[in-house]
Design a protein around this nucleic acid. Sequence first.
RNA 1: CAGGUUGGUCGGGCAGUCGCGGUCCUGCGUUGUCGGGAUCGAGGAAAGUCCGCACUCCAAAGAGCACGGCGUCGGAUAGCAACCGGGGCGGGGAACCGCUGAAAGGCGCGAACCUGCCGGAAACGGGCCACAGAAAAAAACAGCCCCGCGAUUACGCGGGGUGAUGGUGAAAAGGUGGUGUAAGAGACCACCGGCGCGCGCAGUAAUGCGUGCGGCCAGGUAACCCCCGCCGGGAGCAAGGCCAAGCAGGGACGAAAUUGUCUGUGGACGAUGGGAGACGGCUCGUCUUCGCAUGUGCCUUUCCCUCUUGUGGGAAAGGCCAGUCCCGGGUAGGCUGCACCGAGCGAUGUGGCGACACGUCGCCCAGAGAGAUGACUGCCCAAUGGCGCCUCGGCGCCAUGGACAGAAUGCGGCUUAUAGACCGGCCUGAGGC
RNA 2: GCGGGUGUAGUUCAGUGGUAGAACGCUUGCUUCCCAAGCAAGAUAUCGUGGGUUCGAGUCCCAUCACCCGCU
Length: 117
Amino acid sequence: MQRKFRLTRSEDFKRVRRIGKSYAHPLVVLVAQANETSTQHVRVGVAAGKTSGTAVHRNRAKRLLREAMRPLLISLASGWDLILIARPALVTATLADTRSALINLLRRAKILAADES
RNA sequence: CAGGUUGGUCGGGCAGUCGCGGUCCUGCGUUGUCGGGAUCGAGGAAAGUCCGCACUCCAAAGAGCACGGCGUCGGAUAGCAACCGGGGCGGGGAACCGCUGAAAGGCGCGAACCUGCCGGAAACGGGCCACAGAAAAAAACAGCCCCGCGAUUACGCGGGGUGAUGGUGAAAAGGUGGUGUAAGAGACCACCGGCGCGCGCAGUAAUGCGUGCGGCCAGGUAACCCCCGCCGGGAGCAAGGCCAAGCAGGGACGAAAUUGUCUGUGGACGAUGGGAGACGGCUCGUCUUCGCAUGUGCCUUUCCCUCUUGUGGGAAAGGCCAGUCCCGGGUAGGCUGCACCGAGCGAUGUGGCGACACGUCGCCCAGAGAGAUGACUGCCCAAUGGCGCCUCGGCGCCAUGGACAGAAUGCGGCUUAUAGACCGGCCUGAGGC
RNA sequence: GCGGGUGUAGUUCAGUGGUAGAACGCUUGCUUCCCAAGCAAGAUAUCGUGGGUUCGAGUCCCAUCACCCGCU
């Protein structure tokens, strides 16, 4: 995932966590906030807390989320800031599991159109 | 060959597709969070942070006191108490062997090797040693012996000697045998053990071996205090430096209001209601916060409309939110420190038992800041499970599927976690030549 | 990256090197028609783990593990 699609600044994280809406799944939690003013494309942040395990497991969870999100970026509605938070079960999940979980969440948030794959 | 023990090396490989980060080069009517190319991209522990350094700031980084640490010998190092090699005193340690036993087993001896400690200190500075015991450090309960008195004796009373015997205890003033004596005792003698002072030999030294002399005075504890010597100033890259903007704060000048009291206004506080948020699965509830400032704002006055005298709405005018200048943080942000010509890395040679040192050749070798090194596919190599074959420890087929773990200023040591693979060293026992 | 602290009964905590304690909780009994309260009795500990010093260690020394708090 290229860096221009990434949510990096600490204040952005704070803003999205404060006023964004959250959607839960056993593997991932999605927090979304419409932010059409700053940039036109979607920005995604990824987080994994200490409940996910040691540094190896946290890094793996974040890599999985980024890799699963990468091909979905083109089909997303623009102007959204998203945060993906890993849950402990994600450590044992595969890439396909993670991707279907993300599609489910994004449809519920009405960021991904239902008819697209 | 079997068993024990110990050290080192590696810790998946190859190919393809997609993707991520750094550096260098490069392209542009588009100068970008742009495109293209080349190249590099986790570990033996990157981990724990138990030690030691470099580096940076604190005024000077020096001295003294306090406090803390260390303390056998030699070596290594930029440095370290912690690394290497030895020494001493303990602890553990298989087989064989010995004793015991019907056997199982138990006890002893005990290799390689592993492991704790080490100044004064031979506890002649202080403290402590529960319970038991007479007594826990120069002690005397029972007992033994002598003397005197009473008594036929048994024994009792008083004075003295003694530390062999008894019981207690973790520990009772070297051990065994003899001489000696009223009874006894290192009081004396022989041997053994320990200690001190010499001498000879070996060793750089600690120390070891041998030998001579001395006097038996010497309970345990210093991983209790103490004394002596040596070392240590404190904080840490989230250290620290620079930059732009703004704010908190500070200072100076100016304007307005004369000052006090009351009233009013402004302002402050509280209560109620409302909005937002947190806790929560939800409701109740509890808690926190909010009076919003060029505006659809707030206040005053006047006028108009509505209406329940309240009130609500609208318009106009005036006022308020806001005097000027200078200094100026911390945090957040950006750049740097910071990706390094270095206690550097790789190969190799020499010296050393080793820690390590000295050469030669080659190389420049990860560097983020929500934090790059990943995903998928195929084949192979180990591993595990199942089935089959046979020459019995190998082969074939199928399935599963990869230990611990992720750099964050850098380096040295230690510790902890770790599927498995490979290569050695030493010791003991058995067999063969 | 640092600094500090804790680990003892089910829970919260005491504990001079010398028999491991308190409160609450738990169990049983008494009391009551029943419950609560009350009264009486009782049980419950690998002192985080592993070594060492000592006659003797929860306490002293060393190593190690887990957890908590704080700084910026």
